[in-house]
Amino acid sequence: MRRDSGGPPAINPFLVPGWEESPLRPLCPWRYESHDELYVDVNHTLAAFQEYTRRMAAVENLREDGRLVLVTGESGCGKTALINRCARWTRDRLTERGLRGVVVDLTRDGSRQSVEERMGLVAARLLDELAHSALLAPEALASLDSVRPSRLYAGLGNALPDDVVLIVLLPPADEVVQEVVAYAGLARRRLLFFAESSYLGHAQVLKVRDSSPVPPITLAVGPLNQGDVRRFIEDRLTRHHERGHYPRISTETMDKAAGPLRSIAMLQRILSEVYEERGKQDSGYTDDDWVTYEDITRLFYEKFFDDLRIRR
């Protein structure tokens, strides 16, 4: 990004401060407090979040009854960001009630294995994390090591300190209903599981609900609605105004971009890269300059046909 001499810096308003190198990472307020403010109400995520807070109002009950939360929606719709927000909220509410919510992020510990293998791997990784955070006494760890997931999760509630509730973020579950149902059954006392899937449709979610001994809280993140794109762009263009300068986008362009940019991930990716590209060119990067719809379509074309260019 160019920096004009003297004045405020030229910045990319679509990058999260501190995460400039990874524009597609979902917001994570349980790890970075400042992210909590960056949520924009798109894709029904606010409604889903509110539904979660309503259902979990008596969060202290987790000490006795665990729960699974299943978030579904197509790729790039913001499922992980919603889960991170819910995890943060849960941890804060537990703190308010004199309890400790410990978030264990195992979202990257999935692989193309059978359910049994995947669950075994998750269980082993959970124990690693608990050992690392010294939440379990060595003898408790030793007694739980290598036991089957069903025994592990049943025994974990007793082995954890009295004030601790584990908030476990599970790896994506694809379309395997069986795995989600298994976790719904394993969510025993002091355990809150978050699972997400891009491939479970409405029918399969109903199947999960019907098959689970304790039905999970299910949250669906939908597609972008009318006005979502404009709301998101306006938020980003307004929010960072004091940090630096950058070109503007007309409301007409925003509304036009709502046609092709159909998910929050796509919106975030294309606009952040349009601004990056613009920053490298000499076509103006001041508050008086404009990013046009043509800038967006050009970048889309170049990215989309990237391998075609390579082949040629």
Partner: peptide, 13 residues
């Protein structure tokens, strides 16, 4: 597959 990844089209859908 490469193109979808490059522009974050909704893969699962």
């Amino acid at each position: 597959q490469h193109a979808v990844r490059n522009v974050s089209l909704p893969l699962s859908s």
